[in-house]
Design a protein around this nucleic acid. Structure first.
Length: 295
DNA sequence: CAGTCGCCCTGCTGGC
DNA sequence: TGCCAGCAGGGCGACT
């Protein structure tokens, strides 16, 4: 599942393969992925046709492509979304939802790459989506409420620490709060908490500043490590967002390891229900806080 | 406003 | 063999 590192791999791939291209044709094959666009499928297509892609940007798990008129194509991959760069005429993927035919002006094809034929949004479960953000080239208004992500040089560590310590929710819930810090999903939240030896139910206002700072450092470390491994996951024609490629499985210490021995203390990793999903933690290294609190 | 919960989607897996 | 519940889960609307 794409979290910040995977989305960054996609962004880098788009930067390399589609920046400079003009969108010649838009084909919406399924309405749901464009549900957030007020113009609907037809308005979405009309607003993008003929526009040139100027850049590829990201904040947290959101991606956007600034366009030559100041608008932007905003994208979220949800759980299963992929952005694929394919040669024109490649057979359609099973869950192909939106196609963009691309054309490059003579001499401006990406260096070292085959000129892109199509940008494709493929999404099995359709939690993801695309929309046109009017005037959103710099920062789409639709995501202005999302906090900066921990790899953003302008992320304010001190403000984050202060905000966490004013909240009564469990720290895992706070890590997943995109208004506090963006880009952290269930997997990296569990991994960062394991590294920090903190239980996710520890209330924010019961943490010392140094603990929050260390946790933030672990969030950055685990994401940076995953990103380094994710850099190899796509070739010249593919922007590969395949979450099953296994590149980060190897470095996981908690997530998905129910019953397996903790890499640090040997106690079996536990899984508990959390917000209609799961949390994984080591009961030895990450003791449950004494004050019971639902997270 | 902070906090919490349920829903949206599809496909795979496991139990009976 | 078939059926259905459970699970995966980010974000948002609705509620207290």
């Amino acid at each position: 599942m794409p979290e910040l590192p995977e989305v960054e791999v996609v962004r880098a791939g788009l930067e390399r393969h589609v920046v400079g291209a003009t969108i010649a044709l838009v084909d919406v094959l399924h309405e749901r992925p464009v549900r957030r666009d007020p113009g609907g499928a037809s308005g979405f297509a009309a607003a993008l046709t003929g526009r040139r892609i100027e850049a590829a940007r990201r904040r947290g798990k959101y991606l956007w492509l600034p366009l030559d008129n100041g608008d932007a194509l905003l994208a979220h991959l949800g759980m299963s979304g992929q952005m694929l760069v394919q040669p024109a005429g490649a057979p359609p993927e099973r869950h192909l939802r939106v196609r963009f035919a691309l054309s490059f002006p003579p001499g401006s094809a990406p260096a070292g790459g085959v000129p892109a034929g199509e940008l494709r949004f493929v999404d099995q479960r359709m939690f993801g989506g695309l929309s046109v953000s009017p005037g959103g080239a710099d920062l789409p208004a639709e995501i202005a409420h999302i906090a900066r992500d921990p790899l953003d040089p302008e992320f304010d560590d001190a403000a984050f620490v202060a905000r966490v310590r004013r909240r009564t929710s469990g720290v895992k819930r706070l890590l997943l709060d995109q208004g506090l810090i963006s880009g952290v999903g269930n997997i990296y939240a569990d991994e960062a908490l394991w590294r920090a030896r903190l239980h996710g139910e520890r209330p924010g206002d019961r943490l010392r500043p140094v603990q929050v700072r260390e946790l933030l450092g672990h969030v950055r470390d685990v994401m940076t490590a995953a990103l380094a491994q994710g850099g190899t996951s796509f070739d010249a024609l593919y922007v590969n967002v395949n979450g099953q490629s296994g590149y980060f499985d190897r470095s996981l210490h908690a997530y998905g390891r129910e019953g397996e021995a903790c890499d640090r203390c040997g106690r079996p990793i536990r899984r508990v229900a959390f917000m209609n999903r799961s949390s994984y933690f080591c009961p030895g290294c990450q003791p449950v806080p004494r004050t019971r609190r639902r997270v």
